[in-house]
Design a protein around this nucleic acid. Structure first.
Length: 446
RNA sequence: GUCCCGUUCGUCUAGGGGUCUAGGACACCGCCCUUUCACGGCGGCAACACGAGUUCGAAUCUCGUACGGGAUGCCA
């Protein structure tokens, strides 16, 4: 049994969105679950669109999400390997030079399309005479290189889709090298996977035709193709496809939105599977429960409302120690007692700020029942207000005003916090202080 | 246009000819708990895209239609 090794291979041409991130996560979880290695490979062969800034953002996002990679590499450092692989393919007659310009190819495609034929490359370059080639060269044209596909059926057992068969005759011979000598992803990816000993390729189903062609490429280079797995893509809540080219929800956006990384992990690890989404703050638990065979073939909808619910469940269980720095950074005081008083009612950690303000900054109280709030003001025990006075105090207010249940507590809640819902009030008293409590009960802004 | 893939409760899905009056999870609704909100516990509502066919019998098999996604790049 050879070593399991998977890779996440983003191109630094945009920000990670939830779809990309799910691919990364699935690879990460698969590696951790199987004791294999997780590699980060920067696919930066598209030099026109790749930027260092995007790359930094990708790394930051992965780290923030808790996906540490064991090894990394980048394609721009391995250019010589791709040239060598192309030479090898030429020697075997599997790579051939083409002289069409991009414009000519576009024209050809349009003609095929309007004639009702599939836009498959016609292999005209294979028919070129040496005179024609000489003429092109004299013109100053440099060739781009294509991989000659075998016209048979490529089959593989896909980890998520089961048996897959692909008719290669409906595919164009893929370009491997550009006219200017820069390698194309199709070749670079296969060479890297071979050299790095990648054992499993887990990616989105937008890559299935790539995989079909690449399986032949692996074989042409004398290697065995890794085990493949193509996950159904994610769609937005409205059913729209998700693509970095369409500018979908980025991770940075979610992060700014105060979403817990583990909420995203919890959802992404289970969406599209038959297992229930389990809000968990512990990556080890997610790894433990991960099973690649649970993923279905249908496109699942990623709903931010569901993410928000998962986030809330996680936040409500977060121990003070894990949020202390964030609370301090947001100028939320009160320490652990305050956090414990409010966390059960939070959906996002950032809401702690709102409650801290409500307790310590002036608010305009809402007087819903003056009878209750006046009685409460009159009956407030002497000395410091704190949680321990609550029971006795509210009992006294109840018997003085005749109010009880919701009729008793809602007026108090509205006067003291200005809100209809929120954490239990008793433990909040101490943070408000006696003067503020009294003033608010009397309807004064305090 | 062509080629792949998909379509079961609001959502994620189980299901691979009779055990399905279709199961679970989340959401929603209700009840209980709490003399308030939330949490928690219990219960309820709710789905096989459509049409043919095969079969004694179809959510399950076949074909077609519709809708959706993907691919069809000298992008990844």
């Amino acid at each position: 049994m050879s070593q399991i090794k998977v890779r996440f291979a983003p191109s630094p041409t945009g920000n990670l969105h939830v779809g990309n991130l799910r691919t990364a996560l699935v690879n990460f979880l698969f590696a951790r679950k199987t004791g294999g290695q997780f590699m980060l490979r920067i696919d930066d062969t598209d030099t026109e669109r790749s930027t260092a800034a995007f790359e930094e953002r990708i790394r930051a996002d992965l780290q923030w999400m808790g996906m540490a990679w064991d090894v990394e590499d980048r394609q721009s450092k391995r250019l010589g390997r791709y040239d060598a692989a192309l030479a090898q393919l030429r020697a075997k007659g599997r790579a051939y030079a083409c002289y069409e310009t991009p414009e000519e190819l576009t024209l050809k495609r349009k003609a095929q399309l309007s004639a009702g034929r599939p836009p498959v490359y016609d292999r005209a370059a294979l028919m070129l005479t040496s005179e024609q080639i000489a003429a092109f060269e004299a013109e100053g044209r440099q060739p781009h290189w294509r991989f000659r596909l075998e016209d048979d059926e490529v089959r593989w057992y896909d980890m998520v889709r089961g048996d897959v068969a692909y008719q290669m005759s409906s595919l164009s011979d893929p370009v491997l090298m550009r006219e200017d000598g820069r390698v194309i992803y199709t070749l670079a990816s296969v060479v890297d996977d071979i050299d790095h000993g990648i054992s499993h390729i887990l990616r989105g189903e937008d890559h299935v035709t790539n995989s079909a062609a690449q399986i032949q490429l692996f074989e042409a280079l004398g290697a065995q193709a890794p085990t493949m797995g193509h996950m159904a893509l994610l769609a937005g809540a409205d059913g729209e496809g998700m693509s970095k080219r369409l500018g979908s929800m980025s991770i940075a956006e979610l992060r700014n939105n105060d979403t817990e990384a583990m909420a995203i992990v919890s959802l992404l690890a289970r969406i599209g599977t038959s297992d229930p989404v389990l809000p968990t703050a512990d990556m080890a638990t997610v790894i433990d429960g991960f099973d690649i065979t649970r993923f279905g073939r249908a496109t699942a909808k990623f709903d931010t409302a569901e993410l928000s619910q998962v986030n809330a469940k996680i936040v409500q269980k977060l121990p003070f120690a894990t949020v202390v720095e964030r609370l301090e950074a947001a100028a939320v005081g009160g320490g652990e007692p305050f956090w414990n008083a409010i966390r059960d009612n939070l959906s996002y950690v950032g809401e702690a700020v709102d409650w801290w303000r409500i307790c310590t900054q002036p608010i305009t109280p809402i007087i819903d029942s003056a009878a209750v709030t006046n009685a409460a003001a009159d009956l407030l025990p002497r000395g410091d207000v704190e949680a321990s006075i609550w029971k006795e105090w509210t009992n006294a207010v109840a018997s003085a005003s005749g109010a009880k249940g919701r009729g008793l507590f809602m007026p108090l809640r509205l006067a003291l916090t200005g809100c209809q819902k929120g954490p239990e009030i008793a433990p909040l008293l101490a943070f408000m202080g006696r003067e503020r409590v009294l003033a608010r009960l009397r309807g004064e802004t305090a």
